[in-house]
Design a protein around this nucleic acid. Structure first.
Lengths: 216, 216, 216, 216
DNA sequence: GATGAATGAGAATTCATTCAT
DNA sequence: GATGAATGAATTCTCATTCAT
């Protein structure tokens, strides 16, 4: 493998990366997201991605990315970037844990309406990756850290008495799993109205997290 | 010999499938389940499966199955068979909808302890299948029908007043997604104690489904 | 390769071949003829032939024949046997060279009506065989000897003045080729009325062979 | 990349096929022609063709052709192109039907001297093709249309009285069959002097077609 | 003699990656 | 920087043949 993986490039060459190169990379990542969401991880070959990106050959992708793993990592990173940009303001606008949880779930599902391919793509990638390669471990770590963050926030809300008593890690996992289930379904069934699920899902987890004994 | 897919064989040749052939098929399916769970759908090649099954060549698998789709269908069928055998009695022993829901979730997760590879394998397969091939559509249909069944049962429990008011389809999807999330996690992280999650998850969905207004 | 090729068997074991074995061989040869005629030489696999013969496995074929070449040789031999039985009496009933030529062509084409698969099968086999293997060379030799025989008969008829002046070898080849063309066509196009061609073809070669200067 | 069959490429990408790609394709087609003529259709594998073409792997062939069918279609097309280039001027230089028929036969056989592998290759391909695949049907159609054209021309010559009375379709088939027989023989027997046959064959069919009653 | 499961070589095809231009 | 042709490993699948029972 060439030493030129994107991480190395970012660190050692820094600002020297030209605008057009960045644009090329973004273009490829975007195409990859679309292709992965449409045909699934297994069939998301360089050939298909290149064709979608309007590139004449797969060599272009290998030139800009150190390998398939590198491209996939960028796909995940890009989706996270977009998701953060959309969700974080909406979550931070809330003052209660319940509000933030609702904002998290609803904005996450809303994202499916705004960027219909992004979440399905990331679910595909993370569902098909193992922690074998050191470079791959980053993927899982990223997702785990999200769950961990939730676990932590839930735990805090339990300490203030806003949330009831339950295992915060299982709750975080369940929320993640339920959302991913909706995302997967939305990706495979174009008729499925994912956005309509958002409020319902938020209601569900509100009931599951609230402290019934509060104020007794 | 295309026509020799398992369905055709079962229907047209009936009992003519010999004992040893059935044993070989079962052996291959078992190996496939293990390999899929361990390395993921994309890397679960005939070569790896044959090696795991102690077979001398991939040709042996092609000899016993009409193709990869056929093998995958058998994998799903076998896991469903095992899961049904384990879960159905436990579910039917319950008399209330809440009891059945809990039994469903807990026995499903317990299955991870008894057959640690089965559910991860099926999650991998169903997560990587598109409804393109007519033979593939059966997979999705099987899973969908499960969700549909739950949707229906939830709806019934709502009519009796045992469950509260919410969209039964979203609830069914959320349950499915949460369980799959736990299964996926268990598959990738051997240290993850899935079984411990069962009761927690059941508690979670009990809170989410129960009718708070009952008896008011 | 096992020493037990059919030729060896016939010569060394002679009458020791049991009736049932001969029946089995005949049954396989018959199935092979049908399969070859229907799907062509390339797709005439042991699997297909065994299925057509009502055999449970291809091993049966390998048991009775030393190999694919051996089976093919038997196919050719059987067709020649049948063709001889049908054509020779009809040819020998004629007293003139022209009559014999006509009887040859017409009875050859008529054979297509009586045994629709036999000639197409042999055309397929001989068209796909090279003289590389020593065992294969027999095939070509058989066909060549037929053409040689015709060449000789034509030459005789030229000496008596019954036939005109032309290269007897080319004539023999042309007759063979024209008949094979009709046979091929008949095999691939079920609507083609081969039998109706017989007289026309015989007329054609009568005009081409007759001595126009005779009696001048 | 299924869509990259030559037809699609030619139509959708038009002139975008580069010079070197066209050269590679031509080189592969040429190698295929030689291999098919030498070892026969059944044994003309990508491996053998790649080796003959000096390519490192069979993948190269799959890269340039959509599949074996595509390559075979190109083989047939290339031979037809060469044959047309050689034969059509010689045929059109003739003013009588008899002259054109002779020119057709003689130039066809002469082609065996100029391009000894071309006609044998095409006879092999067309002899081993069934009308199953839609793409294959084109082959047969191409050959049938040639026979049909002859049938028509013969019919015209009969109406002017230049040719005698006979079934034009059978005559066309016989001509085709006789030539193919010579071609086949030439392919298998390197000592066979095909060119010498040309005039003889033309004489033969001149006698068979001429109107004996003309001017009576 | 007969069976059918097993074998292993070889087929076409796809893919990520490399490299000369 | 960019291109696209070439590479070679890997994958699924088929086939004739063998061998223990």
């Amino acid at each position: 493998m060439r030493a030129r993986n994107s991480a190395a490039k970012q660190e050692t060459e820094g600002a020297s990366r030209t605008f057009t190169e960045a644009a090329r990379r973004a273009q490829i990542v975007e195409a990859a997201i679309e292709v992965i969401a449409e045909v699934g991880y297994a069939k998301a070959t360089f050939t298909r991605i290149a064709k979608r990106a309007g590139l004449s050959s797969t060599g272009m992708i290998s030139y800009h990315f150190a390998g398939k793993d590198d491209l996939m990592r960028e796909v995940v990173a890009e989706v996270f970037r977009v998701a953060d940009g959309y969700m974080v303001p909406r979550i931070e606008a809330q003052t209660t844990a319940a509000g933030r949880l609702r904002a998290f779930i609803e904005s996450n599902i809303e994202l499916l309406g705004e960027f219909p391919k992004h979440l399905p793509a990331v679910v595909e990638v993370l569902g098909n990756v193992r922690g074998e390669d050191s470079t791959m471990r980053e993927f899982c770590a990223a997702m785990d850290s999200l769950v961990d963050t939730h676990t932590h926030l839930i735990h805090e809300a339990q300490k203030t008495g806003e949330f009831g008593e339950f295992d915060p890690r299982v709750m975080a996992l369940a929320i993640r799993g339920a959302i991913d289930g909706v995302v997967s379904r939305a990706a495979k069934d174009p008729d499925f109205d994912a956005v309509a699920c958002g409020r319902e899902l938020a209601d569900l987890f509100e009931r599951a997290t609230r402290n019934d004994k509060r104020g007794e």
